[in-house]
Amino acid sequence: MNETLTESVRDYTRAAGGGLIIGLPLLFTMEVWSHGFILPWWKLLLLLGVAYAVVVGYNTVAGFRQDRSIGELVIDSTAALGLGIVVAFIALLVLGRIDATTSLRDAAGKVGLEAIPIAFGASLAQVEFGGQQSSAKGATGPFERLLVGAGGALLFALNIAPTEEAVTLGIAASPLLLLLVIGTTLAMTFALVFLADFGGRRRARGKRPLEHPWSETVTAYAASLGVALLLLWAVGRTEGASVQAVVGMTVMLAVVASVGAAVARLMVGGEHEGGKS
């Protein structure tokens, strides 16, 4: 009995630690603090909902624990989000971003936004660095890989989307430069996943159309573009912006997003691999 208690404490400490590792850059980003009270309340709720869905999706594919029912999946995902909220609140208190003069709405906005990357980090820490590896579930299909890729894209792009730099790069780029960026991004992610061979994690190629290296690269890039656009909209960058500006910002942010998608796809491995040992 005592042993399982110790194990649980260790599990949640690791989850909180993983959350901090992923969340720290955004905890130290001024734009996120201000977005906490500038963004309308329904947008914050929508973002939290999307984040929760991503955590559930990630736990479904990668497996928080091996032997779990749907109910346990929901409970584990809720714990990840709850942990994110608690850690975000404590961190913002310690950093002096929330004090007695902060209004309730302001504090809720900041905590809500900062909780998202921390919740991602928490579930990532549980799945990737937990003791119980889901060894029985080594094979991931192309759609699962795409979903995990989108999660990785979200995780990486989240750090960049609130900053001014994404806007500056996107607005300053000419259409020709953007085409060059698209080509470079595709070549880079293709090389990362299929040529660089990080730790031999990715070797096998399946027979389904989506499993061809180029089709996977292109679909993952499309998902990254979607994630980039969603994030830019979420932080209010698309409001009043011209179509060209939105396209520019999306393509620039998708560079970061697609690297995240590539790393995530590397981590879950290929169809015929015997798990992620």
């Binding site: 309340w41 914050l44 709720l45 939290l48 409970i75 809720t78 714990a79 989000l81 709850g82 942990l83 909220i85 608690v86 609140f89 309730l104 709405r105 809720a108 906005g109 905590v111 809500g112 909780a115």
Partner: peptide
């Protein structure tokens, strides 16, 4: 779990 559900409820409620 209890703390998680409570913190989510408070956050969503305030918003």
């Amino acid at each position: 779990i209890v703390v998680s559900v409570l913190s989510i409820a408070v956050l969503v409620g305030v918003l």
